[in-house]
Simulated scan of single mutants.
Amino acid sequence: MTDPLALYVHWPFCVSKCPYCDFNSHVRERVDQEMWRNALLADLAHEASILPGRRLGSIFFGGGTPSLMPPATVAALLDAAERAWGFEPGIEITLEANPSSVEAARFADLAAAGVNRVSLGLQALDNETLAFLGRAHDVTEGLAALDTAQRVFERVSFDLIYARPDQGLADWHAELARALSFGTEHLSLYQLTIEPGTRFQTEALAGRLVLPDDDRAADLFELTRALTASAGMPAYEISNHARPGAESRHNLTYWRYQDYAGIGPGAHGRRAGVATQRRRKPENWIEAVARNSHGIELEDALAPRERAIEAMLMGLRLAEGIDLDRIATLGEQPIDKLADGPAIERLAAQGLLERDGAHLRATDAGMPVLNAILGDIVRVPETT
Results as ranks from 00 to 15, higher is better:
3 D>Q: 15
10 H>I: 01
12 P>W: 01
15 V>H: 15
26 H>Q: 12
27 V>L: 06
39 A>C: 11
43 D>A: 13
44 L>I: 07
46 H>A: 09
46 H>F: 13
56 L>M: 09
59 I>W: 00
66 P>E: 01
68 L>V: 14
69 M>C: 14
72 A>I: 06
73 T>Q: 08
75 A>L: 10
75 A>R: 11
77 L>M: 14
79 D>G: 14
84 A>L: 04
93 I>D: 00
93 I>V: 14
100 S>G: 12
101 S>L: 10
112 A>H: 09
113 A>N: 09
123 Q>C: 05
132 F>W: 06
139 V>G: 06
140 T>Q: 11
148 T>R: 15
150 Q>A: 06
154 E>M: 07
155 R>D: 09
156 V>S: 02
157 S>W: 01
159 D>T: 04
167 Q>V: 10
167 Q>K: 11
169 L>D: 02
170 A>R: 06
187 L>C: 02
189 L>E: 01
192 L>T: 09
199 R>S: 07
202 T>F: 05
207 G>F: 04
207 G>L: 04
232 G>C: 06
232 G>N: 09
242 A>P: 00
246 A>E: 12
254 Y>A: 00
258 Q>K: 08
264 G>E: 08
274 V>M: 01
280 R>V: 15
284 N>S: 13
284 N>C: 11
291 R>L: 15
305 R>D: 03
310 E>G: 09
311 A>V: 02
315 G>R: 01
320 E>A: 13
328 A>Y: 02
333 Q>T: 12
348 A>F: 14
353 L>Y: 02
369 V>L: 10
376 D>K: 13
379 R>S: 08
379 R>L: 13
380 V>M: 13
381 P>Y: 08
382 E>F: 08
382 E>P: 06
